[in-house]
Design a protein around this nucleic acid. Structure first.
Lengths: 137, 137
DNA sequence: TTAAAATCCATTAAAACTATAGGATAAAAG
DNA sequence: CTTTTATCCTATAGTTTTAATGGATTTTAA
């Protein structure tokens, strides 16, 4: 149930990029230093963020990463799904990654299902109500 | 962010014990079979549930496990904390297991902190509003 | 005293997560 | 065109967590 460091670092990097604003590319090294993150690890995280449409990049001198969208338009639901995976804690209550449990003959009678549905909805509610912009102010 | 099988199986076992009711001990083998759980794995789970005051046990022939409290009095907050650990997804927002982050100079300015506080509160709200009895009906 | 059942202890197997290494590619500056 | 700078990419090592297993011990009922 712990948040992975990948997600934690990814969120911090996004926040930093949003805070410096401007379309000026920011170098990995600068982000890593400012947020106390291993540069090499951060590198791979930024790569997945770019591949998933959150960041743009520029190579060579003066290069680096920058936000593609406005912070107000970056929803936590999508960030979490890309970095952390499904928001649901069990596949049988997942909206985007549904899977039936091997055990469990009847979902509707399953206590775990019943509880985790509520947990998913409450988490979803939080992520839907937060954009990157909300985490800065 | 996935629910561990330990927690899943533990919840199912508790639910089953609550459903058979009566103070008759139920054998591990019976629970395991009914819920499609590896008996050996379930064994260790029931043991921790007993050590944490949820279950009583009786040894020898005719022995087994049984609920110590009424299902209405078993809160999901305490079950989750024992089986899954802290409800918070980062230690810096945990009520019962608080720890400062090594990185992160100022919690109050941390975006991850800000988001995870909300997630914790929403999850807590769900767990506080559910007892074992609620999961059966 | 025998059989059934929980308990205890130690170990392994498998999976996920974290981090690093090393080179390939591309862009910019001079 | 060469050097520098920085991203891009793949692989893998190390660590931790999760899941499962095996076997010896103790308790209880009949």
């Amino acid at each position: 149930m712990m948040l992975s460091k990948k997600t934690k670092y990814g969120l911090k990097a996004l926040t930093y990029l949003a805070s410096v604003d401007g379309k000026e590319p920011v170098q990995i090294a600068e982000i890593a230093k400012h947020e106390n993150i291993s540069q090499k690890f951060l590198e791979s995280i930024l790569l997945t963020l770019r591949r998933n449409g959150f960041l743009g990049s520029k190579k060579g001198k003066g290069g680096g990463y920058y936000l593609i969208k406005q912070p107000e338009d970056i929803k936590m639901t999508s960030v979490m799904r890309v970095l952390e995976g499904p928001i649901a804690m069990v596949p049988c209550v997942s909206l985007n990654f549904y899977e039936k449990c091997d055990d469990c003959p009847d979902e509707n009678k399953c206590s775990v299902h019943k509880l985790m549905l509520q947990v998913r909805d409450s988490a979803l509610n939080v992520y839907r109500n937060n954009t990157l912009a909300d985490l800065i102010s």
